[in-house]
Simulated scan of single mutants.
Amino acid sequence: MEALLMAEEKTKQDKKGRLLALRDYLYKYTDEQHPVSTQELIDEMTRQGYPGNRKTIKDDIDVLNKFGMDIITNVSRGNSFYMASREFEIPELKLLVDAVSSSRFISAARSEQLIGKLTAMASEYEKEQITPRIFTGDRIKANNPHLYYVVDMLIQAIQNKKKVRFQYGEFDADKHKVLRNDGEIYINSPYGCLWNDDFYYLVGYSEKREKVVTFRVDRIVDLEIMDDDIIPEPADFDMSDYAKIVIEMFDGEPQEVELLCDNELMKSVIDKFGENIKTERVSDEQFKAVVNVSTSKTFYAWCFRFAEQMKIVGPENVKNTYIEMARSVIG
């Protein structure tokens, strides 16, 4: 009796193993252009230690399909089989691989790991369509292997509504990493993280500065989650609006600014501020744009990029600051 029970248990285990082996093989080695025959599947399962026949193959495929797999049986080709769909389509994987490959936030080593995981979601043949698009060696990449864990801790703190404390790094004139303000401890009530220009930014409330501020996540050092609950978001705070106003993620005074631009700059203005900004053609050569921005040095630097093709019309205080910055550059 005991021997019979053991034999039945082994049969169950063999069937489970055969199903998993069959699923993995179809996932890795088949697609619409590369189906496999029943005999090829029998031979492969036998090679892996799961001998069977045409009936077991058919029954196992029926079970896999019943539980969500998309395995197509091509009767016209003598019952050949292939995995018809996966979690991601090839165009989607290409987009994800390119995003990971080009991201400065993700280190080169971590990029290769992520790309490996993404390409594993395609068949061995489809990988060839993705791999040639991977170029990471000549791109500037982050050199901080702990970024993943910093982001993970920040997400935990945001979800649990707990304050965080940390130090903030920067570089001195000799390109040495140093702590800002002699190692000052920053305490922040985190509200969310924003992605902008290939960098992650923490957005949260600073009690010291009594306002919502941003920090580059890759410059955060010795992050800790505190036991204290966060200070609730100000009543007038909206993360989407904040992201639109604080361009390039540098703090400044949010203001409505009027720009006078050459017509050819319309695409650059829309790229920066979106299609919903207020614009008005003023001549055959120029248009006006009214934008809500954080008037920081970064905003002024963005305007400088276009030299005489873009002018700040108002308000007067912003215009004067821009003029003074131009004079200081000239010396």
Rank of each mutant, 00 (worst) to 15 (best):
K244A: 11
I247M: 13
S206H: 03
A99P: 02
F67Q: 04
I245Y: 00
I323S: 00
I72S: 10
G274R: 04
S296A: 11
Q159P: 00
G49F: 04
D197H: 10
E233F: 03
K141D: 08
L147Q: 14
D174P: 00
A173V: 09
R219F: 03
I90E: 09
D238C: 03
M69I: 00
Q255C: 05
R216M: 05
Q255Y: 00
E233V: 09
R219S: 06
F67C: 02
A122F: 04
T11A: 15
N143D: 14
I270Q: 12
V213A: 01
I72W: 02
D70L: 05
F273M: 08
E32I: 10
N79T: 06
I130M: 03
Y25C: 04
L114M: 13
D60L: 07
E126I: 05
R219N: 11
P51E: 07
P190V: 10
S85R: 13
N263V: 01
E128K: 15
S107Y: 04
D218N: 09
L265W: 09
V164E: 10
R281M: 11
I115S: 02
S111C: 12
F215N: 06
D197P: 00
R110D: 15
F171G: 00
D60T: 06
K311M: 11
D218H: 02
D182F: 11
I61Y: 04
V221P: 01
M45E: 09
Q39D: 13
L259I: 07
Q255T: 03
K127M: 13
G116D: 08
I270Y: 12
M249E: 05
N144R: 15
Y200E: 07
T279H: 03
E8D: 14
A7M: 12
L41E: 02
I71H: 04
I140G: 04
L41F: 03
D236Q: 06
F304S: 11
I130G: 06
T38L: 07
G17N: 07
E2D: 13
Q255L: 12
V178A: 01
